[in-house]
Amino acid sequence: MEKLSKLLTDYIVKKNTISETDYEIYKYGFLIGIELLTCMVICYILAIKMQMFWECTAFFLLFFSLRSLVGGLHMNSFKVCFLCSCLVVFFTLSMIKYFPISKEFSLVISVFEIIILYYMKPVENINRPVNEKEKNVFSNRIRQTLIIITFSVCFFYLANILKYLVTIVYTLGIIIISMILGKAKNQIERCRG
Protein backbone atom coordinates (compact mmCIF):
# COMPACT_ATOMS: atom_id res chain seq x y z
CA MET A 1 0.00 0.00 0.00
CA GLU A 2 2.93 2.26 0.72
CA LYS A 3 4.21 1.63 -2.82
CA LEU A 4 0.82 2.36 -4.37
CA SER A 5 0.45 5.63 -2.45
CA LYS A 6 3.98 6.63 -3.56
CA LEU A 7 3.14 5.74 -7.17
CA LEU A 8 -0.06 7.83 -7.10
CA THR A 9 1.73 10.77 -5.50
CA ASP A 10 4.59 10.59 -8.00
CA TYR A 11 2.02 10.59 -10.80
CA ILE A 12 0.24 13.75 -9.64
CA VAL A 13 3.58 15.50 -9.04
CA LYS A 14 4.63 14.69 -12.62
CA LYS A 15 1.32 16.09 -13.91
CA ASN A 16 2.09 19.33 -12.00
CA THR A 17 -1.15 18.95 -10.04
CA ILE A 18 0.65 19.46 -6.73
CA SER A 19 3.98 20.92 -5.73
CA GLU A 20 6.89 18.86 -4.41
CA THR A 21 6.47 20.53 -1.01
CA ASP A 22 3.04 18.89 -0.60
CA TYR A 23 4.40 15.46 -1.57
CA GLU A 24 4.40 13.87 1.90
CA ILE A 25 0.92 15.20 2.72
CA TYR A 26 -0.58 13.69 -0.45
CA LYS A 27 1.34 10.45 -0.05
CA TYR A 28 -0.02 10.08 3.48
CA GLY A 29 -3.54 10.96 2.29
CA PHE A 30 -3.40 8.35 -0.47
CA LEU A 31 -2.07 5.76 1.99
CA ILE A 32 -4.90 6.39 4.46
CA GLY A 33 -7.48 6.36 1.65
CA ILE A 34 -6.18 3.06 0.22
CA GLU A 35 -6.09 1.47 3.67
CA LEU A 36 -9.63 2.63 4.46
CA LEU A 37 -10.94 1.46 1.10
CA THR A 38 -9.29 -1.96 1.55
CA CYS A 39 -10.82 -2.35 5.00
CA MET A 40 -14.27 -1.33 3.76
CA VAL A 41 -14.11 -3.77 0.82
CA ILE A 42 -13.21 -6.65 3.16
CA CYS A 43 -15.98 -5.63 5.58
CA TYR A 44 -18.53 -5.46 2.76
CA ILE A 45 -17.46 -8.91 1.55
CA LEU A 46 -18.11 -10.18 5.09
CA ALA A 47 -21.44 -8.34 5.19
CA ILE A 48 -22.55 -9.74 1.83
CA LYS A 49 -21.64 -13.28 2.95
CA MET A 50 -23.73 -12.67 6.09
CA GLN A 51 -26.53 -11.17 3.91
CA MET A 52 -26.24 -7.90 5.83
CA PHE A 53 -25.20 -5.35 3.19
CA TRP A 54 -27.64 -2.66 4.36
CA GLU A 55 -26.87 -3.14 8.03
CA CYS A 56 -23.17 -2.76 7.21
CA THR A 57 -23.94 0.40 5.26
CA ALA A 58 -25.94 1.80 8.19
CA PHE A 59 -23.09 0.87 10.54
CA PHE A 60 -20.52 2.70 8.39
CA LEU A 61 -22.71 5.79 7.95
CA LEU A 62 -23.30 6.11 11.67
CA PHE A 63 -19.80 5.06 12.73
CA PHE A 64 -17.89 7.38 10.41
CA SER A 65 -20.18 10.38 10.88
CA LEU A 66 -19.97 10.23 14.67
CA ARG A 67 -16.52 8.77 15.27
CA SER A 68 -14.86 11.47 13.17
CA LEU A 69 -16.24 13.98 15.70
CA VAL A 70 -15.89 12.17 19.03
CA GLY A 71 -12.63 10.34 18.38
CA GLY A 72 -11.74 7.02 19.90
CA LEU A 73 -9.10 4.35 20.00
CA HIS A 74 -6.40 4.60 17.34
CA MET A 75 -3.98 1.78 16.68
CA ASN A 76 -0.28 2.34 16.08
CA SER A 77 -0.05 0.31 12.86
CA PHE A 78 -2.24 -0.31 9.84
CA LYS A 79 -2.13 -4.10 10.27
CA VAL A 80 -3.48 -3.95 13.82
CA CYS A 81 -6.03 -1.27 12.86
CA PHE A 82 -7.15 -3.30 9.84
CA LEU A 83 -7.56 -6.49 11.86
CA CYS A 84 -9.38 -4.73 14.72
CA SER A 85 -11.66 -2.82 12.33
CA CYS A 86 -12.67 -5.97 10.46
CA LEU A 87 -13.26 -7.80 13.74
CA VAL A 88 -15.37 -4.95 15.12
CA VAL A 89 -17.54 -4.87 11.99
CA PHE A 90 -17.89 -8.67 11.99
CA PHE A 91 -18.67 -8.67 15.73
CA THR A 92 -21.24 -5.88 15.36
CA LEU A 93 -22.97 -7.51 12.40
CA SER A 94 -23.02 -10.84 14.26
CA MET A 95 -24.59 -9.18 17.29
CA ILE A 96 -27.23 -7.55 15.09
CA LYS A 97 -28.02 -10.84 13.35
CA TYR A 98 -27.82 -13.32 16.21
CA PHE A 99 -28.63 -11.21 19.26
CA PRO A 100 -31.46 -8.89 18.27
CA ILE A 101 -33.08 -6.95 21.08
CA SER A 102 -36.68 -5.87 21.43
CA LYS A 103 -37.94 -2.64 19.98
CA GLU A 104 -38.66 -1.11 23.38
CA PHE A 105 -35.32 -2.13 24.87
CA SER A 106 -33.54 -0.81 21.76
CA LEU A 107 -35.26 2.54 22.22
CA VAL A 108 -34.27 2.78 25.89
CA ILE A 109 -30.64 1.74 25.27
CA SER A 110 -30.21 4.07 22.29
CA VAL A 111 -31.56 7.05 24.26
CA PHE A 112 -29.17 6.18 27.10
CA GLU A 113 -26.24 5.92 24.63
CA ILE A 114 -27.13 9.25 23.01
CA ILE A 115 -27.13 10.90 26.45
CA ILE A 116 -23.73 9.36 27.24
CA LEU A 117 -22.31 10.60 23.93
CA TYR A 118 -23.77 14.06 24.53
CA TYR A 119 -22.00 14.41 27.88
CA MET A 120 -18.77 12.52 27.09
CA LYS A 121 -15.88 14.71 26.03
CA PRO A 122 -14.37 13.82 22.65
CA VAL A 123 -11.13 11.85 22.65
CA GLU A 124 -8.29 14.03 21.47
CA ASN A 125 -5.57 12.46 19.41
CA ILE A 126 -2.37 12.69 21.39
CA ASN A 127 -0.53 13.76 18.19
CA ARG A 128 -2.98 16.57 17.37
CA PRO A 129 -4.25 18.76 20.19
CA VAL A 130 -7.50 20.63 19.57
CA ASN A 131 -7.83 24.36 20.38
CA GLU A 132 -10.92 25.98 21.95
CA LYS A 133 -12.36 27.18 18.63
CA GLU A 134 -12.12 23.67 17.16
CA LYS A 135 -13.69 22.21 20.32
CA ASN A 136 -16.69 24.52 19.88
CA VAL A 137 -17.06 23.52 16.23
CA PHE A 138 -16.85 19.82 17.14
CA SER A 139 -19.38 20.29 19.98
CA ASN A 140 -21.89 21.86 17.59
CA ARG A 141 -21.40 19.12 15.01
CA ILE A 142 -21.70 16.40 17.65
CA ARG A 143 -24.99 17.92 18.85
CA GLN A 144 -26.31 18.13 15.28
CA THR A 145 -25.30 14.53 14.56
CA LEU A 146 -26.90 13.31 17.79
CA ILE A 147 -30.13 15.13 16.88
CA ILE A 148 -30.17 13.34 13.51
CA ILE A 149 -29.50 10.02 15.26
CA THR A 150 -32.31 10.72 17.73
CA PHE A 151 -34.75 11.38 14.88
CA SER A 152 -33.54 8.21 13.15
CA VAL A 153 -34.13 6.19 16.31
CA CYS A 154 -37.65 7.62 16.61
CA PHE A 155 -38.37 6.93 12.94
CA PHE A 156 -37.13 3.32 13.06
CA TYR A 157 -39.02 2.76 16.32
CA LEU A 158 -42.31 4.15 14.99
CA ALA A 159 -41.89 2.46 11.59
CA ASN A 160 -41.09 -0.81 13.38
CA ILE A 161 -37.83 -1.28 11.45
CA LEU A 162 -36.01 -3.25 14.10
CA LYS A 163 -32.85 -4.18 12.18
CA TYR A 164 -31.77 -0.54 11.81
CA LEU A 165 -32.81 0.34 15.34
CA VAL A 166 -30.65 -2.53 16.64
CA THR A 167 -27.83 -1.47 14.30
CA ILE A 168 -27.88 2.00 15.89
CA VAL A 169 -27.83 0.52 19.40
CA TYR A 170 -24.81 -1.71 18.75
CA THR A 171 -22.94 0.91 16.71
CA LEU A 172 -23.34 3.58 19.39
CA GLY A 173 -22.14 1.03 21.95
CA ILE A 174 -19.03 0.34 19.86
CA ILE A 175 -18.33 4.09 19.57
CA ILE A 176 -18.64 4.57 23.33
CA ILE A 177 -16.32 1.61 24.01
CA SER A 178 -13.83 3.01 21.47
CA MET A 179 -13.92 6.39 23.20
CA ILE A 180 -13.28 4.83 26.62
CA LEU A 181 -10.40 2.73 25.26
CA GLY A 182 -8.99 5.76 23.41
CA LYS A 183 -9.00 7.84 26.59
CA ALA A 184 -7.34 4.99 28.51
CA LYS A 185 -4.67 4.57 25.82
CA ASN A 186 -3.96 8.31 25.77
CA GLN A 187 -3.60 8.30 29.56
CA ILE A 188 -1.16 5.38 29.44
CA GLU A 189 0.90 7.05 26.69
CA ARG A 190 1.01 10.33 28.65
CA CYS A 191 2.26 8.49 31.72
CA ARG A 192 4.99 6.76 29.70
CA GLY A 193 6.14 9.87 27.88
Rank of each mutant, 00 (worst) to 15 (best):
F82N: 08
P100L: 06
V130G: 01
E104D: 13
I126F: 04
I142Q: 00
K97L: 11
N136C: 05
S106F: 01
T150L: 15
K79A: 09
H74G: 03
Q144L: 13
V169C: 06
I114P: 00
Y164N: 04
A159M: 14
Y157D: 00
L158C: 11
N127D: 13
Q144C: 10
I149E: 01
L83G: 01
P100Y: 02
T150D: 03
R128M: 13
N136V: 03
V123S: 05
S139F: 10
S106N: 14
R128V: 09
V88S: 10
L83F: 13
N140H: 13
M75G: 05
L87D: 00
N127E: 14
I115Y: 08
F82L: 12
L83I: 15
C81P: 11
V137W: 07
S139E: 13
K121W: 03
R143Q: 11
K163A: 02
E124M: 05
V169D: 02
F155E: 07
T150F: 15
C86F: 09
F138M: 11
P129K: 14
L107V: 00
I168C: 08
I161L: 10
F90N: 08
M120K: 13
F156W: 09
V169E: 02
Y164H: 06
F82V: 06
V123M: 08
V137G: 02
T167Q: 07
C86T: 13
N140K: 15
V108S: 13
T150V: 07
V123Y: 02
Y118M: 10
I168N: 03
Y98E: 04
